[in-house]
Design a protein around this nucleic acid. Structure first.
Lengths: 340, 340
DNA sequence: CCAAATTTGATGTACGTAAATCAAAAAATC
DNA sequence: GATTTTTTGATTTACGTACATCAAATTTGG
């Protein structure tokens, strides 16, 4: 049987009340007594029964998710996964609120974060916009002991406790490797379609992609990035235009707006053997993978990201450890044979 | 606030004791009364607080993991992950026991399962050996209300509640697709190294591999399977011999014993451009991926499989639902750029 | 209608922890 | 040494559920 507070009290030769004072860092305990209790805790290997404690406290975990108000499949999916988590709230003792902020707007994000400082949720998960002022508020909140995890898009250099998302540089590198290997001995040019180079994850994917391309596939030339603003219409136009260039042998789509990409490919490239790699598994990209318009899809599992963020925020709020391997967000690679 | 047993009692106009009798299926309640209580439960949307219930019951979950006594990296890793879970037992209220049985020995497995029928653990996770007599005991145990999940290797056609492992047919198909695409226009022969065709997961991988190869890559001929018995020495000999055939352009290693494969490749194929795809990420395959001896690794995450099996067995024991998406075991694809 | 059997209610204890109260003891201050 | 302050102990209640006991009410059988 694992030891209880009673065992600690007996071992330390103090009363239950004193043990409680030490455990919950209440005042009114001398240093020597505190030390005695802490020794007993260590020696008996006491671990607080979190379930019993939460029951006694009637504790819930008020969590806030901050998302950009972007109208693309991925953000919709992420939103849906959070709402799924809300349905599980009773069992998980969570109390989840979603706040949408204008996309690419650091000031708005900062304002929301400042507001939360007063509201005192027990954890914050946010899709970070990469800007110095955001970093500053995040660091301030972390110093005020708010657990914060970044979601999907990280805020490097900040004090955030954890990043629940994929390694985007590795994703770009992987895309380059697959594209390069799929193309084999062919020479030619590669079109890259991104959302915006102002978004950190897109920049990182491109960075990883370009570096592997340059180093390992010198026969393939990466063309200047097409910025489709994650909009299917814009993407369609840009790709359709680009495909006028007969030297293009491959396409890497590292952002959203794949619906436009797919349409352009079907119109313009029926007779050509383009190799195409895209990000994010949606109904559209899935269909395109099956009908061979796309050759591979790189994906991050939004459900895993949300569940992981919740687990981590709860653990941080309780000062508990997490299982690192469980919280690593993988880069899923799909070809038509391993679709879920 | 979510409703409690008290609310149910009040709503149904009965006492707490009666609600308790209904909830825990104790005798001594008339049909009409039972129906009243059940209606109240439904209408208030009552969900039992599992944490509080477990606290009151002093409940633990005695779980049994049955593994083959195979001496390969994957099984060692699986074993290690279970021991990690044992370390978390206090917090998770589990009580995990590992039983090793001789590999490929249905009779031994059946004997162990029969024994468990008396011991009454609240859940069983097993690496299944695919044999009719095993299926029969598993079905018998399921009918006796034991939660059972198969781990890594499934027992299709049985009544097991869940399979915590990858889709091996899809894995084989994926390997074929990657190999075929990596080889591009090259023609030649493909060597396949397996452990044993008596093991279901190996048979399935081969089946998936061969079908995609035949259907989509007619220029690549799959050679007869080399059965390396998951033994590095045997694998080394077989592969070294096979590489005498200059027509071989690719290798698919779908089992264990990759240490032998890698050694043979480094000795015999320095001057050749073989494309190699192997299963299971270990220290050896990882190194080989990095030094370009292997081109891609397909992997199943043993840690995820173990944690998933535990979650599912606990949920089944409590009659709770699971999050399906969370329990899907993915086929991880690693190239040198997305190694964890 | 009475006795026996069944069903229901009332109540208490327990699980491990949190949190509060009040009294008692010890330490610090003058 | 008396007084104030700080520290500690003892005890109680609560969280939501499980489970046991005993009494009371209701139903059933004869």
């Amino acid at each position: 049987m694992r030891p209880t507070v009673h065992d600690i009290a007996a071992a330390a030769g103090v009363s239950l009340a004193t043990v409680d004072r030490v455990l919950n860092q209440r005042p009114g305990v001398r240093h020597v007594t505190r030390a005695k209790v802490e020794t007993a805790i260590r020696e008996l290997g006491y671990i607080r029964d979190v379930a019993a404690a939460n029951l006694a406290k009637g504790r819930t975990y008020p969590l806030v998710f901050i998302l950009p108000a972007s109208d693309n499949s991925f953000m919709h999916g992420l939103n849906a996964e959070i709402r799924q988590a809300v349905l599980r709230s009773p069992a998980e003792r969570t109390d989840i609120r979603i706040i949408e902020v204008p996309a690419f707007d650091p000031a708005a994000l900062v304002a929301v974060l400042e507001g939360l400082s007063r509201e005192r949720p027990c954890g914050i998960a946010m899709v970070a916009t990469d800007a110095p002022e955001v970093r500053a508020v995040v660091d301030k909140l972390v110093r005020e002991r708010f657990p914060i995890v970044t979601l999907v898009s990280d805020l490097t250099g900040s004090l955030r406790h954890h990043y629940a998302g994929v390694d985007n540089i590795a994703a770009g590198r992987t895309a380059a490797r697959l594209l390069g290997r799929f193309l084999g001995p062919r020479k030619g040019e590669i079109a890259v379609l991104a959302g915006s180079m102002l978004v950190r994850d897109h920049r990182e994917r491109l960075e990883g992609f370009a570096s592997v391309m340059a180093a390992e596939f010198p026969d393939l030339a990466v063309l200047p990035v097409l910025e489709g603003r994650d909009d299917p219409e814009v993407a369609h136009r840009l790709v359709a235009d680009a495909l006028g260039n007969a030297g293009i042998v491959g396409v890497y789509s590292l952002g959203a707006g794949n619906r436009g990409l797919i349409r352009a490919l079907k119109e313009k490239a029926v007779d050509r053997t383009l190799t195409v790699i895209a990000h994010e598994l949606t109904a559209y990209t899935r269909a395109a993978l099956i009908d061979n318009t796309i050759d591979a899809i790189l994906n991050q599992d939004a459900g895993h990201e949300v569940r992981s963020a919740i687990r981590i925020l709860k653990a941080k709020a309780d000062g508990l450890a997490v299982i690192d391997a469980q919280e690593r967000i993988r880069l899923d690679i799909f070809v038509k044979d391993n679709l879920p």
